[in-house]
């Protein structure tokens, strides 16, 4: 709002209150500048730290104890874990969003679902990790596996995915539904052919935002997918039952974020801090890409789908 010029000030306002107003304006602008400055310096810091570390060979080679080495297996694990998690979380989240937006009545059950949604969102990620530890590692005797990690991540991110899809679906105008129903379509046909297609830009944005969070998560995975550093992956080994195969969901799966935590806690070797700086720079750029991607893709899809 444009409250910067208030003529009445000069008539009634005391000098002190005008000064206080000026001071407050400066302070509030200061908060905005502070955030930008902080973000800018973080990006510059990692830009400098990653200089000379991040290179094609860093991304494409195996970790090493005696040289800088690379992070290929860990980067692969992060992407694999993301894919596996989204494979489960996206359908369940969107279906749940459809229920909450299209079917849920104003009753106790809906209330309970919302409470559960908020409760899971507020449970510390480390506790969700511990839950995964009891359930998958101890009770199902799976050991530390990519699958256990992906399931724990799904549980943790399901509320976010559900709520974002619900919002995307709710944003579809009511008239579209009425028109479809008036043409004789059933409720599900309406959802399937009218509501969901119209909500696709919003749904895609919610998927990418959830993906960004999954990609950077570590605490959930610490006790479900494990901390072991893979030495080398043979990408031609497609035997899913073989724990050594990089394609198998039943193998320990250390991701980038977990790897950073592990390296800093061990703190050995002269290359460790370089590897962590490089990994952190890659992690941040990926998350940045997810965020910008969500905005761009959302805008593009909206334009294409609504203009057509």
């Amino acid at each position: 709002m444009s409250a910067s010029t208030t003529p009445s000030l000069h008539l009634r306002g005391s000098r002190r209150s005008i000064l206080a107003d000026r001071a407050a304006t400066v302070v509030l602008w200061g908060t905005g500048a502070f955030v930008l400055l902080l973000l800018g310096s973080i990006i510059v810091h990692f830009g400098i730290a990653a200089w000379g570390v991040v290179s094609p060979s860093f991304v494409l080679s195996d970790p090493s104890d005696t040289a800088l080495g690379g992070i290929l297996p860990i980067l692969w694990n992060s992407i694999y874990m993301l894919g596996l998690t989204m494979l489960i979380a996206v359908p369940v989240g969107i279906l749940g969003g459809i229920y909450m937006s299209e079917y849920a009545g104003d009753n106790k059950l809906t209330e309970a679902i919302r409470f559960a949604e908020e409760a899971i969102s507020s449970v510390p990620s480390i506790v969700v990790g511990l839950f995964g530890l009891i359930l998958f590692v101890d009770n199902f005797h799976m050991g530390f596996t990519a699958l256990g990690g992906a399931l724990a991540l799904t549980m943790f991110n399901l509320p976010l995915m559900t709520r974002l899809s619900e919002q995307a679906l709710r944003a579809v105008p009511q008239d579209e539904r009425s028109a479809s129903l008036a043409l004789g379509a059933t409720k599900w046909q309406t959802i399937q052919h009218v509501v969901v297609p119209l909500a696709i830009p919003g749904l895609v944005t919610s998927i990418i935002l959830t993906a960004g969070r999954v990609f950077g998560e570590a605490a959930v995975l610490l006790f479900t997918a494990g901390l072991a550093t893979p030495a080398h992956y043979d990408f031609t080994n497609f035997n899913l039952g073989d724990p050594a195969s990089p394609w198998s969901p039943l193998r320990p799966c250390t991701t980038m974020a977990v790897y950073i935590y592990k390296l800093q806690s061990e703190g050995l070797g002269i290359y460790v801090s370089k590897v962590v700086d490089g990994s952190a720079a890659i992690l941040i750029s990926m998350v940045l890409a997810f965020n910008l991607g969500a905005r761009l893709v959302g805008r593009l899809l909206t334009r294409r789908l609504t203009a057509a």
């Binding site: 359908p91 279906l95 749940g96 079917y103 849920a104 309970a112 839950f131 359930l135 409720k187 399937q192």
Partner: peptide, 28 residues
Amino acid sequence: ERLDLPRRVVFLAAVSMIGIVTLLLGFI
């Protein structure tokens, strides 16, 4: 309408969160 399959499927997806919370609270 009450019996249709899609409704049940989306309902299960939403209710799964109650299941997760209950299990989580119980186990911890």
